[in-house]
Write a protein that binds this DNA or RNA. Structure first.
Lengths: 344, 344
DNA sequence: CTGAAAGCGCTTACAG
DNA sequence: CTGAAAGCGCTTACAG
């Protein structure tokens, strides 16, 4: 419990019989230092459990060795109905933490930013903004303060910005639609939402193009973006009115509403209707029936985002956006087993 | 995009026509400063968008104005089956962030700590360790470095430690058992797990005492702590072998296994079996039937933990542990509607 | 290869 | 009520 005073660089220098300068050189791999001296310094630092004071280091170097993470959820997340994506965000966060750690950076969780002053209170070398809205204000704040920023998800209106990492929505959509078509679907609808996140925007565009190429009239229903159960149910009812034989649902939070309405109408999944959702989750895996879903690989996404941010912090050239490949987990909801239709 | 140089305290001093000392006094509410001077300084700081450099501040004061949060999940959380509690942890994390922010503290997400050196790399004034195991190593590391620490959940073996905040497990258990008894249950079992978290340990003890007071033989089945689906199912089968008419399941991740086994055996919930789970979640709310569950109020828990930690950082006397009251959300799984039993 | 010295931007005795 | 000066623990030209 007794907090012994933390060793300073001069303590290490003393033990090693050199100057603080030399200790600094050794520890930071700068300058030329004799191998024997280097060994003595390393040993002394090790023995004392020396860790440079990050405030002093940061003050001198102007770097905080800290990056900020801004999730699109606040403290009121219990209320929000997109709680279904919590696994995704928590996985994203924990992987960001570990990736940052491996790069010798600490990870600051930023609260929702109400203004520039909120952001100014944190000293970070860079920031990661998750799920930017079109012309995202949070990104603008980082830019305004000259702090390097990278987004997870693309800001669909900042078309010149190369500093983002995102799961491949267009590719995923093509994969899902092809999968449903191969399973025999002829009238494939999309049930989505009108939020400006690239995951949804790109899915819609890809769906339209895909339908166009096949000369099919797209059936596209957008739920209200309020994430309320009632809106989900209303949109589900509307899409079923079109009598599709398959539905792709990029926003995973609309899936349970769709299943419920289908059940109420006696529409069997997968017998009468194939379903695939956009973001894999425990719920998708344990749903009845289990739902075919796209695995967005939040772990890789987080790591790529940290890499890209550090590249930007170090003044690197825009390395271009990074698209993260996805995987389709095919489950019972999209498997048309002959004879399984119209089970009682 | 152009990063204009950040204003320093001397810039503010210059604009206000005073010394840096006075600016510091005004901004930190120290010393006596003339009201007019104070106003000029405040205005100047405001106009320049001045924010003290936290590294300089920290170097001088020895404080980092940063607290660390250590969740019991790592980057591999997709694998772990306790993903069901992700809402709880994410809510905890986001509320910790906001509470810290309101106390002018930044919140560092700490990665899993493999040793003292990992912890030394972070400069934090204090730490919050979530769900400590008995004689928790992470807590020991903070103590070893002399960094104030507070736990969310009680370390059941460090009985002298008053620095914790936890949802009231004993109270919740009593509430659930009474609720089930009032609904008519006579043979109330507990399906839990042998992990040393206080939430589970206290629930078991309370259950035993409760049964003892009523002269009932407790039916207590503990699942293996590996969080595998197979272990959950095995434990569920074992508890149903005892033919209980109600089960309280403190670890929420065992609930779906119980429901599945009950369905397979033709045991109707709630007709033949009342069920209540320990941690409320979206899954509990949307389960079929919806599950009666304890709301642990992670938001209050997080805020109290931050309060307590700051109290400890400031050298306050042990204020004693803080028990967070819980709420029971009574849902269909524990409502014995006469005649509802043995629905097809 | 090594070290003395300056300075990063603050806060805090201390003097006036 | 106000300010000059020291110093927190580092890193980095610079000199030797």
């Amino acid at each position: 419990m007794a907090s012994q005073p933390r060793p300073r660089i001069r303590d290490v220098a003393e033990v090693a019989g050199v100057s603080a300068t030399t200790v600094s050189h050794v520890l930071n791999g700068k300058g030329r230092v004799d191998a024997a001296t280097r060994a003595r310094v390393t040993a002394a630092a090790e023995r004392l459990g020396y860790r440079p004071n990050s405030n002093a280091k940061g003050l001198r170097s102007g770097r905080a060795d800290t990056i900020g993470l801004l999730l699109p959820v606040g403290a009121d997340l219990e209320q929000a109905h997109h709680v279904l994506a919590v696994e995704f965000y928590l996985t994203l966060a924990m992987n960001t933490v570990e990736a940052a750690f491996e790069h010798d950076q600490a990870l600051l969780q930023l609260p929702p930013l109400r203004g520039l002053d909120d952001l100014r209170r944190f000293s970070v070398d860079g920031g990661i903004v998750v799920d930017p809205l079109p012309l995202d204000t949070r990104v603008a704040m980082f830019n305004e303060l000259g702090v390097p920023v990278v987004t997870i998800g693309r800001d669909i209106l900042r078309t010149q910005d190369p500093w983002w990492v995102a799961a491949d929505s267009a590719g995923s959509t093509g994969m899902v639609l092809d999968h449903l078509a191969e399973a025999g679907a002829r009238r494939i609808a999309m049930l989505s939402v009108d939020i400006g996140w690239s995951w949804f925007a790109d899915a819609q565009q890809t769906y339209r193009e895909w339908a166009g190429r096949r000369g099919i009239e797209p059936i596209l229903v957008l739920a209200r973006p309020d994430k309320l159960e009632s809106s989900a149910v209303a949109a589900a009812a509307e899409v079923l009115d079109h009598r599709p034989d398959a539905v792709y649902v990029p926003p995973q939070w609309l899936a349970s509403g769709l299943l419920r309405v289908a059940r109420e109408r006696g529409v069997d999944v997968p017998g009468d209707l194939l379903v695939s959702v956009g973001v894999d989750s425990h719920l998708a895996r344990t749903s009845e029936p289990p739902l075919t879903a796209v695995d967005l690989d939040p772990a890789s996404t987080a790591r790529q985002a940290v890499d890209l941010l550090i590249h930007r912090i170090e003044g690197g050239e825009p390395a271009g956006p990074r698209l993260i490949p996805t995987t389709l987990h095919s489950r019972a909801s999209s498997l048309r087993t002959p004879g399984a239709a119209h089970r009682p």
